[in-house]
Design a protein around this nucleic acid. Structure first.
Length: 652
RNA sequence: GCCGGGUUAGCUCAGUGGUAGAGCAACUGAUUUGUAAUCAGUAGGUCGUCGGUUCAAAUCCGACACUCGGCUCCA
């Protein structure tokens, strides 16, 4: 839910479809109240593919209730109630809410409209407060609405879930009922047909059908096993990005999957993000020691969580404020260290940067790694390849001077653009995450933030695609530019990201020697054009609907024999393709050619070579492409040359 | 983590208290085939797990695991 309050002007510009759906939300509320009069409504906006209303009531909805509610909604549509606007004063609105009249069919003594009361308080002084009434239902609402409820007949309820009032967990749980509506019955039906079509492209479904990856309960939730087919796609993508990195002057590094807890205490990720990390690994000796001391689990945890006075004072001094409070300090002999599965790669890369003295002449230093990280995502959040607990980022950290930041950010963006363009992914949006000046989450020097935000904004402008600036969306250490795409059911996922960071160089006391022969603080840029290989591949599977271009396809070519008579030539051809470095399989089974084609087609193999007696005698191949169909007959050598070129150029 | 669905053969799914089913895939055999399914046969299951109710549970109840859609979170 957007926390941004829409102005009345913005609301007046609501699209026709949103207006219809917003009215449907009111009709739905009316229907619910007819069945469950105690319902208290909170917030019911139109959303991208429909609408919802959040409310609280004793009865807990299940999908079994949908037909009953839908029937009542259709009845209300038939009654053709007029939507009537009524301006009210703040006092009138409050009185109506107190009596339970707002979001109700009548006054409800003892059951005040508690969410509406709160919403009234949130309306700025001086803004016109208004209600909309249809039939007996009156709701606090700025509108706009359609004229009559008869417009709301092409409607269907889609799902029910829990939600939090104003998105705040502490404010109690509401029920959220989703529906969708269209001007005509045909459009409504069409929407569900399209949805069904889209679900066929779901990467979880295609992943199983095309044997791209496997998630096994015994290994663990959200932990991806890349099966051979999927591994090929990932490897090709990694090869592709590695080539681009070399062109842009990056250095490849490798680092292990774990690091000492102390490292993440310095970086600030532990304990700040400890809820979303796997629990630390304690060394056997330390474990034995705390057991011997009779140390409770809580004490053990406190001792892992604590820092030394030296670490605390060092970081606080460099930051110029109290980053680590005194109550986290324990005497050195009480401290326990352990290892953490790395939740990010930056500390390791920072240590590589810091492993030798750096001159300004060395900068920028660009360290790249396909680094695997582990995060304890909430179980309800896990989703196929797009939200997992272990994933590999195409990560890099750039260490540069303040003057170099703008140019380096531009370089990162051009890399992201090359990647997305090569794959034909043009349907993305760009989000420039800025700090929220009112929030304490964002640390560091305001002047530096301004410079970095300006650099990000200017860099985003060069992309030539629309971008939004979103205050409060920055990382705590600096502004960022994110690339966001949608999956088949319309959910947004962040892929590539470029982040400017002034904080970690301070925490790790990084420096380089400048032209003045004095130490200076470098600036860090974190960037990952794919984001994570897992999520990116998930999105890519859906983008191509499983029909990968030849350079990515796990199986590029399948040879299909018409009969056993051409088997010898087919085998020879197969060997030639493999020798040329192509991924080819030979189907010389007993089925008819029609069945072999069907199987290859279902496996989405881009090239099928039909080999019969004609081809065998002339050394040629009859080419069929999974998307373009029959491409005619060519000499085998010509075909091989053309596919090699297609693959080398990474053609779509 | 929270709310609500779901879990039956490798896959897609039928089966509402009384002997576990179909199609496809797999395997075997026959067929030697020209651009999206040749025919026949065989095999495959502690019905997610554990507990309860019952003479009897895939079916009813409970817990847990996993999964799906949201919510919250996302360095």
């Amino acid at each position: 839910m957007s926390t941004e309050r829409k102005t009345l002007e913005e609301r007046a510009q609501m699209s026709d479809i949103d207006r219809l759906r917003h009215s449907c939300a009111h009709v739905m509320a009316t229907a619910i109240l007819r069945i469950w009069p105690d319902a208290q409504f909170a917030y019911g906006p139109p959303v991208e593919n429909g609408f919802y209303y959040d409310f609280d009531m004793k009865h807990r909805l299940t999908p079994e209730d949908f037909p009953k509610i839908e029937a009542e909604m259709k009845k209300i549509a038939k009654e053709n109630q007029k939507f009537e606007w009524k301006g009210v004063t703040r006092e009138e609105a409050k009185a109506m809410a107190e009596s339970g009249r707002l979001g109700g069919l009548s006054e409800r003594p003892g059951n005040p409209s508690r969410f509406k009361l709160d919403l009234i308080d949130k309306i700025p002084e001086g803004e016109q407060i208004s209600c909309f009434q249809n039939g007996d239902f009156i709701d606090l609402c700025a509108g706009p609405h359609v004229g009559y409820t008869s417009k709301c007949k092409n409607v269907r309820l889609t799902s029910v879930s829990a939600s939090f009032y104003m998105g705040d967990e502490s404010k109690g749980q509401l029920q959220r009922l989703y529906g969708t509506a269209f001007p005509t019955a045909e459009e409504l039906d069409q929407y569900f047909v399209q949805l069904e079509e889209a679900r066929k492209r779901d990467h979880r479904k295609l992943g199983r059908e095309l044997k791209l990856f496997h998630i096994d309960e015994d290994v663990g939730q959200g932990l991806i096993l890349w099966t051979p087919n999927g591994a090929i796609i990932r490897q090709e993508l990694q090869n592709f990005i590695s080539e681009e990195l070399r062109k842009q002057g990056y250095s490849q590094v490798f680092t292990p999957h774990i690091g000492k807890l102390q490292l993440y205490k310095t970086s600030g990720h532990f304990p700040y993000y400890r809820e979303s990390q796997f629990a630390p690994v304690i060394e056997n000796d330390d474990l034995a020691k705390v057991i011997k001391e009779g140390c409770s689990c809580c004490e053990t945890y406190d001792r892992l969580y604590a820092v030394s006075e030296k670490l605390r004072s060092g970081i606080n001094e460099r930051a110029g404020r109290e980053v680590i409070p005194a109550d986290r300090v324990l005497p050195d002999d009480k401290l326990l260290d352990g290892f953490l599965l790395k939740p990010m790669n930056c500390p390791h890369h920072i240590k590589i940067f810091d492993s030798q003295p750096r001159s300004y002449r060395d900068l920028p230093v660009r360290l790249a790694e396909f680094g695997t990280v582990y995060r304890w995502e909430q179980s309800g959040e896990l989703n196929g390849l797009t939200r997992v607990r272990g994933f590999t980022q195409d990560d890099a950290h750039l260490f540069c001077t303040e003057e170099q930041v703008a140019a380096e950010v531009l370089g990162c963006l051009s890399l992201v653009k090359i990647v997305l363009n090569t794959l034909g992914m043009t349907d993305y949006r760009v989000r420039v995450g800025l700090r929220d000046p009112d929030s304490s989450k964002f640390t560091g020097d305001a002047a530096k933030w301004d410079v970095a935000e300006a650099a990000c904004r200017e860099a985003a402008k060069t992309l030539g695609v629309p971008f939004t600036e979103e205050p409060g969306e920055a990382a705590f250490y600096g502004p960022k530019i994110d690339f966001v795409v949608k999956d088949v059911i319309g959910r947004e996922w962040q892929l590539g990201t470029v982040q400017v960071d002034y904080v970690l160089p301070v925490r790790f006391d990084l420096s380089y020697i400048g032209p003045d022969n004095k130490p200076h603080r470098p600036v860090m840029i974190h960037r990952a054009p794919f984001g994570s290989m897992e999520r990116f591949c998930g999105v890519l599977i859906e983008h191509f609907a499983g029909h990968f271009p030849a350079w990515l396809a796990p199986e590029q070519i399948r040879i299909l024999t018409v009969s056993e008579k051409s088997e010898a030539f087919a085998s020879e051809l197969h060997a030639q393709l493999l020798a040329a470095g192509l991924r080819a399989k030979l189907d010389n089974g007993a089925e008819k050619i029609g069945a072999k084609i069907r199987n290859a087609q279902l496996d989405k193999t881009p090239y099928m070579l039909v080999i019969g007696e004609k081809e065998a005698t002339t050394g040629s191949v009859a080419i069929r492409h999974s998307k373009k169909g029959d491409l005619g007959v060519k000499p085998a050598a010509d075909f091989i040359a053309s596919v090699l070129e297609e693959v080398r150029e990474r053609r779509m």
